[in-house]
């Protein structure tokens, strides 16, 4: 069974064995507004927990996308680069950002559950 966790930077991460799929939360897209640009890490590159691993831009501003865990980038989602509005439409499913081969599963421990994240999102946006 896959496990979904959430970061304070509003990323979600789904872990299937060694493979982690990462995207931004619906709450994040609602704060950003219409997304018009997405930049993803290079396939084959290594990213470090809490480091920058991409950029999204709305009509208003640019925001960094961070990776909640360390690992090697094994896939990126070209669909959201070609049509960034897909991120607003389906942020937590088809509009994932990148997949990592996770380096250290213990890094998942510091992340939030769905309930914890929802509470966090509600408190920080109030």
């Amino acid at each position: 069974m896959s496990e979904v966790k959430y970061s304070k930077e509003h990323e979600w991460i789904k872990l299937d064995g060694e493979e982690a799929t990462i995207g931004i939360t619906k709450h994040a897209t609602e704060m950003l507004g219409d997304i018009v640009f997405a930049e993803l890490p290079e396939k084959g590159s290594n990213v470090d927990k809490d480091g920058t691993a991409g950029v999204v831009e709305s009509t208003k501003a640019a925001s960094d996308v961070y990776t909640p865990v360390s690992g090697e980038v094994i896939d990126t989602n070209q669909m959201i680069v070609d049509d960034p509005s897909k991120i607003n439409e389906d942020p937590e499913e088809s509009a994932w950002f990148f997949k990592l081969k996770i380096k250290d599963k213990s890094e998942m421990g510091s992340l939030m559950s769905k309930e914890e994240y929802e509470k966090f999102a509600k408190e920080t946006s109030a």
Binding site: D34, S58, S85
Partner: peptide, 12 residues
Amino acid sequence: PIQYKDGIIQEH
């Protein structure tokens, strides 16, 4: 108001 429910692109 920076935007309403429709969002910037639809409003534009």
